[in-house]
Nucleic acid binder design. Structure first.
Length: 432
RNA sequence: GGGGAGAUACCAGAGUGGUCAAAUGGGGCAGACUGUAAAUCUGUUGGCGAAGCCUUCGGAGGUUCGAAUCCUCCUCCCCCCA
């Protein structure tokens, strides 16, 4: 199966420029996607682009990851991203390194192979670019009329928009177009991929290449649909914020839980996008899923595949064990029987806090326990509200407003498992 | 430079001297139902306490017994004209 067919059945193609299929058949092609180095870790919002590159490389082509050191400090006018701050060079460097590290789980950066992946940073060529040089080299070739026709710009200029647009944001497409031009010239990179919101920016790039280098210079665009949720919410966000690939930022347990909680509808599209499972297997899974959605087989496979891919088999198994205990038929009794190392392993991913043994032996009113001693609730008023609603459990047993935390609540003489609602767990460790 | 319209809680948005910790909607959180779903229904959504009190309506002053609301200055944002 070739690259386009592969993406096609996975539902990962939103739009592409004509002639791309032929181009990919004719020669090994180089393509890039851009990633903003705003943090030292990727989050799952980046995953689609990365998977596109993965498939691209698997199909024998050469992927480039462009770190948007320069573009990342501008932000495009689509409005979802605010104009950003300049990152200092050192931070940029560090972020780039950690990101590359994460990417090597997906992409083969071995330069000895003809299609070994490459990482570049547009800051490297943009930082020296003088303004005058830029408007002469680049600005000359693209008319303002052309730039204003882009949706992202049009919306911001329309009467309904309450926000004006700075010149900086307006120029964004030129800066991104320049990237494409540079990569085209330096690395023979003929394709830019990205989310469908990037279509306009990518096309400015192909246009710039054509106008500047002539009709023989042919560059292509391919976009994938933006990942959505059936309920209209934002993909990849939780209460705590982003789902990161870095286990220090999002524990493998939380990571696993995130995918496991995918809705029935979303799971069908996600399994195609985020796993490398083959078509036959996925078709089978989806069919079973439709027959018996309550088994949540699809969600389980989805969570398994991605957790193993990002973390490891071991981490995955621990996450399953933990989920089993927390959400299975686990009772206070099974909890009490857990050995200390098992308990600690399982709860590695849940938020922890420490309380001194003195306080425990003196007994702590539950309201204070929830607010002052742990961060389970942010105020006493809220704590009472939770308790009144029956949202709080200690060691799997629901407690009320008058409950006192004491030594009897300690598991293994050291631990307390607190729970807010069904899904939020906290481990409290008693210090001696 | 001129004219106009604004800035209210997480967001949108009402409120134009006391009854306002501030309508309504969305979002969030929780409960019931369930499959750790979806939909639905219910509760809740500034802080501390038992009543009550304390801090909030862009910022700083002022008028008043009393201000989100009136006045002055400042900051920011949008639209139109030059």
């Amino acid at each position: 199966m070739n690259f386009i067919e592969e993406l096609q059945w996975r539902g990962m193609i939103h739009d592409m420029t004509p002639g791309l299929t032929e181009q990919l058949e004719n020669e090994m092609t180089t393509a890039y996607v851009g990633i903003d180095p705003t943090a030292d870790s990727l989050h799952i919002g980046h995953l689609v682009s990365v998977m596109m590159l993965k498939h691209f490389q698997v199909c024998g082509h050469r992927p480039i990851v462009l770190i948007g050191g320069a573009t990342g400090m501008i932000g495009d006018p689509s409005g979802k991203s605010k104009e950003r701050n300049l990152l200092d060079e050192q931070t940029l460097q560090q972020n780039q390194e950690s990101i590359k590290n994460q990417l090597s789980k997906f992409l083969d950066f071995n330069q000895n192979k003809p299609n070994g992946a490459l990482m570049v940073n547009n800051y490297d060529w943009m930082k020296e670019y003088s303004f005058l040089q830029f408007i002469r080299d680049i600005g000359k070739h693209i008319t303002v009329n052309y730039m204003m026709a882009k949706d992202s710009v049009k919306t911001r200029l329309s009467a309904e928009s309450k926000e004006g647009m700075s010149f900086t944001e307006f120029s964004y497409q030129l800066v991104q177009g320049t990237d494409f031009l540079v990569l085209f010239q330096q690395h023979n990179c003929k394709l830019q991929m990205g989310g469908s919101d990037q279509w306009g920016n990518i096309i400015t790039g192909t246009e710039l290449i054509r106008r500047k280098l002539g009709h023989d210079a042919k560059a292509f665009a391919l976009t994938c649909p933006l990942i959505t949720k059936a309920d209209g919410g934002k993909f990849g966000k939780t209460e705590e914020g982003n789902i990161w690939l870095d286990p220090a930022k999002t524990s493998p347990y939380s990571f696993y839980q995130f995918w496991l909680n995918t809705s029935d509808e979303d799971a069908i599209s996600y399994i195609k996008i985020f796993t490398l499972l083959q078509k036959e297997e996925i078709d089978q899974l989806i069919e079973n899923h439709r027959k018996a959605p309550h088994q949540r087989e699809l969600q389980k496979v989805l969570a398994r595949e991605i957790t193993i891919m990002i973390h490891s088999k071991e981490e995955y198994e621990l996450a399953v064990d933990a989920s089993e205990i927390l959400f299975g038929k686990g009772t206070t009794d099974t909890l009490k029987r857990l050995k200390e190392d098992v308990l600690l392993n399982i709860f590695e991913g849940v938020p922890q806090s420490n309380v001194s043994s003195n306080d425990i032996y003196k007994s702590i009113p539950i309201v204070d326990f929830l607010t002052d001693f742990t961060k389970i609730s942010s105020s006493k008023r809220e704590a009472r509200e939770f308790l009144r609603n029956g949202a709080i459990s200690i060691n799997k047993e629901r407690v009320g407003e008058d409950y006192m935390i004491g030594e009897n609540d300690l598991l293994q003489n050291r631990y307390i498992l607190a729970q807010r609602g069904k899904k939020n767990y906290y481990l409290i460790i008693c210090d001696y």
